[in-house]
Design a protein around this nucleic acid. Structure first.
Length: 791
DNA sequence: CTCGTAACTTAGGACCCCTAAC
DNA sequence: GTTAGGGGTCCTAAGTTACGAG
C-alpha cells in the first residue's frame, strides 16, 4: 500500500544513518509505541550503568523489546557466533519493520542469508545513492510547493517512483536495480517534461482540429505466408492444395475451430460463401460442403505456433518486443502542432473472419485485407507526405484539418469507415473528453427545469410529445441509450430507448408490493441483456399502457419518436444537450453522491478503496456495464474463501494465546514471573547478553520480556484481524464484481475530477484508482483539480 | 425534411505479461 | 523456479450524433 510506503522509506533512511554513527543510533519512535515507552520509563526499568540521556535509554529499551520478540521465534545463537551476528539480525529486522513487529519468518530467513556473506557491503553500498535520492526528492518537493500546482504531477510521479524500490529491493544485485530505477525515473522525468499542457492553451476556433499534422501513414500487417508442405487441408478425406487466397481463408477458419463461433450455422454459412469466392473454378467445383472439410492439420499447426510462441526464451521474446517497439516508434506517433502525439490504432486491421457480437447476421464473413489503394491519408499539406508501401499508392491524400483522423478506409463486411486516430492521452481526445464533462456539468444546472418540463409533457395532448416525455423519463431515470433505428439484417437485433418494442417491456400494476412496475428485458449494445424491474410514476405507467394499445410485440413502443426528434428537442433545451449527456451526467453525479455517502476519512485505505469501488459499481450497474464472469471465478472465489477460513482459525488461536498471556502476566506474582522468565534458557541468555551490552538490568529486562509477550500476542491478533478484514473486503469486492465491469464507466462516464478531488481529500494515492494509462488520459484533470472540486 | 454516411465515442472480449504465492 | 490470477493493453465492433445531399 502506497500510503504506508513513505514510512518504510523514511525508516530505511534513518536506519542507514544509524549504522554509521552510534550515539543516536536508535532514535526510532513509532507512534504506536509511545504509550508503552512511557509506562516503561516510569516503571522499574530505570537502572542503567552509564549515564544515558533518557531518550537514548528509552530507545535502547525499545530496541531490547524488539530483540525479545525476535528471540523466541528466531533462534539467536548468542554464544556461538557472537555479537556481530546478532546485531546484524537485529538491523535486518528493524530495517524491515518500522513498527518493530516481528513478521512471518520464512522470507526473512532467506533475506538474512542473502545478506550474510557481505554485511559490510550491504550496509554501506546503497547508502550514498539512497541519500542522494532523498535529497533529490526533497528538492522536487520544494519546487512543488514553490510552483505549486504546475508541478504537482511531477512530484507525484517522483514519489511513486521512490516508493517502488522499497518493496522490490530484496533480490537481484543492487546495481541492477539502481540502474533500472534510474532509467525509469529518467524516462518518467522526460515524459513529464514533454507532456503537452494543452489545457493551458487557448482553444482553436470552432471546427479546427489542428494546424499541422504529420505522420508516417498506417502500418500494414505482414503478408500471408503459405502453409508448409507438410500441413494439408483435406476435403472428403483427400488432401487438396488450395490456391493461396483460399488457403488463407481456410487457415482463418481453422484457427477459430476451438471457438463457439464455428459451430454456429450462420457463421459457417457466411464463411463458406465468402471462402468460395476465393477459390479457383476447380476448387469451387470440388468443395461444396463445409462439413466435408478437414482443417485438422491447420489447427494443429496453429496450436503449435501458439505454443512455440509461449515457450520462447526470454531473449527471443525480448527480440520480438524490441522489434515491436521499433514499429511503434516509427509508426505509432505523429506530430500535431509541434507536439509528438501517440496514435491510438496505427495498425491496419488484418484480414480475419468477422466476429460480430450476439446473433450477428454477418458473422463469419471474410474481412478482407486492406491495401494502400484502399486507404485515405489525412495530413498537412506542408508536412512530409507518408510514403505508401513499395509498389503501391494511396487511395487519396487529403488535407482536412476539421477532422481528427490520420488515415481511413472502408471495411468490406459492413461497409463502414475505419479510422486511424490519436491515443486517448492526446490533446484532441482529451479536449473532447473535458468538453463532454463540462456539458454534463452544465446539465446539472438546468436538469431540474428539464425534468419539470418532461413531467409536464407526459400530459401533453400530442402523442409524439408524450412519447418523447416517457422516453426521456427512461433515459434520465435508467440511463438508457438513445436507441437509433438499425437496418434489419445488417446487425444483431439490439435496441435502445427510442427503438424499444412492445415485447421488451411488461407492465405490472403491482409487483412485489410495489405499484406501477415496468419490467424491462431487451438486448442492448453488444447484445448485453438489460433486465430491470422499475417502479415508475403513475403518469408514465398510464402512458405506456396507452402506447401499447392495439400493438403487437414486434411493434415500436414509441412509434412517433426517433433519436433525431429526441435530440433535436434536447438541444433546444440546452446547447449541446443530447441523450447521451444524460448518461454522463447521471453516472458522474451518482459517483459523487455515492462517494460522499460511503467514505469515511477514518477508514483505512482498503476500506476507502472498497467504498470507491462500490460507488463505481453503482454507476456500472446504472449503465448496465456487464462482463462475462471470469472462467476461473468460482475456483478463485473458493480459494479466497479457504484462505479466509484458515485465517479465521489462526485468529481464534491467536486470541486464545493472547488471553493466556494476559492471564499469566496479571495473575502471577513477580516471583512467578521471574520463575517463568528464568525458566527459559534462551531468555536467560538474552538477558545476559543485554545486560552486558546494553547496560540494562535483569529486572527491567524481565519486565520487558513479560510485557513483550503480551504485546506480541496482541500484535499477532491485531495483524490477524487486519489481514482477515482485508481478505473479507477483497472477497466482498470480488463477489459484487462478478458480472460487473467497472472499467467502462471509469473510462468513459465518470468525470475524472471527481475521483481526483476525492483522492486528495481523503488521502488515497491516485494510483490506487487510476493506472498509468488512465493517469495519462486524465492528465488534464489531475493537473487542474483542486480539493474543492464539485461536479 | 428525410436519409445516408462521416466522424467520433463507447464497449466487451482476447490476450499478454507481471506479480504474488507456492 | 513455476504457476495462477488478474490487471493492463490491444483490438475492433457497435453505438451516437452531426451534417450534407437530394
Amino acid at each position: 500500500m502506497a500510503d504506508d510506503s513513505s514510512s518504510p522509506k523514511a525508516t530505511g533512511k534513518e536506519l542507514r544513518d544509524d549504522s554509521c554513527s552510534n550515539g543516536d543510533a536508535l532514535v526510532l519512535k513509532p507512534k504506536k509505541m509511545k504509550a508503552k515507552e512511557k509506562s516503561l520509563q516510569s516503571g522499574k526499568a530505570k537502572t542503567h550503568k552509564k549515564s544515558l540521556k533518557s531518550s537514548e535509554y528509552e530507545n535502547r529499551l525499545l530496541f531490547a523489546i524488539n530483540i525479545m520478540k525476535t528471540s523466541k521465534k528466531e533462534s539467536m545463537d548468542f554464544e556461538d557466533s557472537g555479537d556481530r551476528r546478532v546485531q546484524l539480525d537485529v538491523k535486518e529486522e528493524l530495517k524491515e519493520d518500522p513498527d518493530f513487529v516481528v513478521q512471518g519468518k520464512g522470507k526473512k530467513r532467506k533475506r538474512k542469508t542473502d545478506h550474510r556473506d557481505g554485511p559490510s557491503s550491504t550496509s554501506e553500498a546503497p547508502l550514498p545513492k539512497k541519500k542522494k535520492k532523498v535529497v533529490k526528492e526533497e528538492g522536487q518537493m520544494n519546487l512543488g510547493t514553490e510552483k505549486k500546482k504546475k508541478n504537482e504531477v511531477k512530484v507525484k510521479v517522483k514519489k511513486e517512483e521512490g516508493d517502488r524500490p522499497v518493496s522490490v529491493k530484496k533480490k537481484k544485485s543492487k546495481e541492477e536495480i539502481e540502474a533500472a530505477r534510474a532509467l525509469k525515473l529518467k524516462k518518467k522525468e522526460e515524459e513529464e517534461k514533454q507532456r503537452w499542457r494543452w489545457w493551458e492553451e487557448e482553444k482553436y476556433e470552432h471546427g479546427i482540429k489542428w494546424k499541422f499534422l504529420e505522420h508516417k501513414g498506417p502500418y500494414f500487417p505482414p503478408e500471408y505466408q503459405p502453409l508448409p508442405d507438410d500441413v494439408k487441408f483435406y476435403y472428403n478425406g483427400k488432401a487438396v492444395k488450395l490456391n493461396p487466397p483460399a488457403e488463407e481463408g481456410a487457415l482463418y477458419f481453422a484457427q477459430m475451430l476451438d471457438h463457439e463461433y464455428t459451430t454456429k450455422e450462420v457463421f459457417r454459412n457466411n464463411f463458406f460463401r465468402d471462402w468460395r469466392k476465393d477459390m479457383t473454378l476447380e476448387e469451387k467445383q470440388l468443395i461444396k460442403d463445409l462439413n466435408k472439410c478437414d482443417f485438422g492439420e491447420l489447427l494443429v499447426m496453429h496450436k503449435q505456433r501458439v505454443e512455440a510462441r509461449k515457450n520462447m526464451s526470454k531473449e527471443e521474446k525480448q527480440v520480438i518486443k524490441e522489434a515491436n517497439q521499433k514499429i511503434v516508434e516509427e509508426y505509432g506517433f505523429c506530430v500535431l502542432d509541434q507536439h509528438r502525439e501517440r496514435i491510438g490504432n496505427f495498425k491496419i486491421e488484418p484480414p480475419a473472419l468477422f466476429r460480430g457480437r450476439g446473433d450477428h447476421p454477418k458473422q463469419g464473413m471474410l474481412k478482407k485485407r486492406i491495401q494502400p489503394e484502399d486507404v485515405i491519408i489525412n495530413c498537412s499539406k506542408d508536412s512530409y507526405i507518408p510514403e505508401p508501401p513499395a509498389g503501391h499508392r494511396w487511395k487519396e491524400v487529403r488535407h482536412d484539418n476539421t477532422v481528427t483522423w490520420l488515415a481511413s478506409w472502408t471495411e468490406n463486411v459492413q461497409g463502414s469507415c475505419k479510422y486511424v486516430m490519436l491515443n486517448a492521452n492526446s490533446k484532441l481526445k482529451g479536449e473532447k473528453d473535458w468538453e463532454k464533462y463540462e456539458v454534463a456539468r452544465r446539465l446539472k444546472l438546468c436538469v431540474d427545469a428539464i425534468r419539470a418540463q418532461y413531467l409536464e409533457d407526459l400530459k401533453s395532448k400530442q402523442m409524439g410529445t408524450r412519447q418523447r416525455a416517457v422516453a426521456f423519463y427512461f433515459i434520465d431515470k435508467l440511463a438508457l441509450r438513445a436507441g437509433n433505428e438499425k437496418e434489419e439484417g445488417e446487425t444483431a437485433d439490439t435496441v435502445g430507448c427510442c427503438s424499444l418494442r412492445v415485447e421488451h417491456i411488461t407492465l405490472h400494476d403491482t409487483l412485489d408490493g410495489e405499484k406501477c412496475v415496468v419490467e424491462f428485458d431487451f438486448l442492448g449494445k453488444d447484445c448485453i441483456r438489460y433486465y430491470n424491474k422499475v417502479p415508475v410514476i403513475k403518469r408514465v405507467f398510464k402512458n405506456l399502457k396507452l402506447f401499447m394499445e392495439k400493438k403487437q410485440g414486434g411493434d415500436d413502443l414509441f412509434d412517433r419518436l426517433n433519436t433525431q426528434l429526441l435530440n433535436k428537442h434536447l438541444s433546444s433545451l440546452m446547447a449541446g444537450l443530447t441523450a447521451k449527456v444524460f448518461r454522463t451526467y447521471n453516472a458522474s453525479i451518482t459517483l459523487q453522491q455515492q462517494l460522499q455517502k460511503l467514505t469515511n476519512k477514518t477508514d483505512n485505505v482498503a476500506e476507502k478503496l472498497l467504498s470507491y469501488n462500490r460507488a463505481n459499481r453503482a454507476v456500472a450497474i446504472l449503465c448496465n456495464h456487464q462482463r462475462a464472469p471470469p472462467k476461473t471465478f468460482d475456483q478463485s472465489m473458493a480459494n479466497l474463501q479457504a484462505k479466509i477460513d484458515s485465517r479465521k482459525e489462526q485468529l481464534a488461536l491467536a486470541k486464545k494465546e493472547l488471553k493466556q498471556a494476559k492471564k499469566d502476566s496479571k495473575g502471577s506474582s513477580d516471583n512467578k514471573l521471574l520463575a517463568s522468565v528464568y525458566h527459559s534458557r534462551r531468555l536467560q541468555r538474552a538477558i545476559y547478553f543485554f545486560s552486558q551490552h546494553l547496560y540494562i538490568s535483569d529486572v527491567s529486562l524481565i519486565a520487558v520480556c513479560v510485557f513483550s509477550l503480551v504485546d506480541k500476542k496482541k500484535k499477532a491478533v491485531q495483524r490477524c484481524e487486519e489481514q482477515l478484514l482485508r481478505m473479507e473486503v477483497q472477497a466482498t469486492d470480488k463477489e459484487e464484481n462478478k458480472q460487473i465491469a467497472l472499467s467502462t464507466s471509469k473510462l468513459n462516464y465518470l468525470d475524472p475530477r471527481i475521483s481526483v478531488a476525492w483522492c486528495k481529500n481523503i488521502e488515497v494515492p491516485l494510483d490506487k484508482i487510476y493506472n498509468k494509462t488512465l493517469r495519462d488520459k486524465f492528465a488534464w484533470a489531475i493537473d487542474m483539480t483542486e480539493n474543492d472540486f464539485v461536479f
